[in-house]
Design a protein around this nucleic acid. Sequence first.
DNA 1: TTAACTGTATTATTATTAATAGTACAGTTG
DNA 2: CAACTGTACTATTAATAATAATACAGTTAA
Lengths: 132, 132
Amino acid sequence: MFDLDVRSRKPIYEQLVERFKVLIINDVMKTDEQLPSVRVLAQQLTINPNTIQKAYRELESQGYIYTIKGKGNFVSETKHAINTEKLEKVKSDFKKLVSEALYIGMTAEELQACISDIEKSIGGGEQDDSSS
Amino acid sequence: MFDLDVRSRKPIYEQLVERFKVLIINDVMKTDEQLPSVRVLAQQLTINPNTIQKAYRELESQGYIYTIKGKGNFVSETKHAINTEKLEKVKSDFKKLVSEALYIGMTAEELQACISDIEKSIGGGEQDDSSS
DNA sequence: TTAACTGTATTATTATTAATAGTACAGTTG
DNA sequence: CAACTGTACTATTAATAATAATACAGTTAA
């Protein structure tokens, strides 16, 4: 199903996240379609199930998939509304703002800490009831 | 001159950066005032000169000081124009934009990479003539 | 119930990166 | 040239991230 570069500098769980994102965004994997179980995929790729698990958790925290304990991981529908233009606009705005922030004297670390905080608050409190 | 916490989780070079930023922003250290040399300060604090060097380089890349090789490090004047309101506004805008970006599907890593890129381009090509 | 599947949590190991230090080099000034 | 200044390179250590091993827990159907 995948051919990963195990000795890449990019962690394999990140590679997995990217692959699945592409599949989901391009509608190759449809809403509510089940992803391969952590064990099955791990066996196919001859890596540890926990690495798959990490990738799936990342995908879940970004809203791409939802998880039902004991059943499996499934493609979420929340991403279908996203259009590319909006993504590009946000990227552009973001770069401008970072330039301004750095010029003003915020450190890269402060900015990154800010991202981490927001990331946690988003990833931690929104996916709990996705099975209802 | 300083009392640092050598066994803090916060790196001592970062502590140094913060201390000097406060001194400079609050005009305790005046424009063009010379900072202690890397060796002198290192000896006072009983740490390695290279740690001071790292802090000074960080301060330089953020525009707080400028360096003349063989002479020393001096307080820059570029930061005087910054007012707090602007900083707060940028912070607020930044948080909003990060939320939006994460919601749309950008990863925290993508955002952070973006910050790093911009940080490099700013730190590398704008501070060269700050002594003129 | 139990067997065979599913995800999860905890901990350990390994790999990678960041922080600090040691040392030698190079510019400035009197 | 002597005594100061910053710089560059490398090694060492500390911290963190990535991956793995293993045991646990929920779901489903015979």
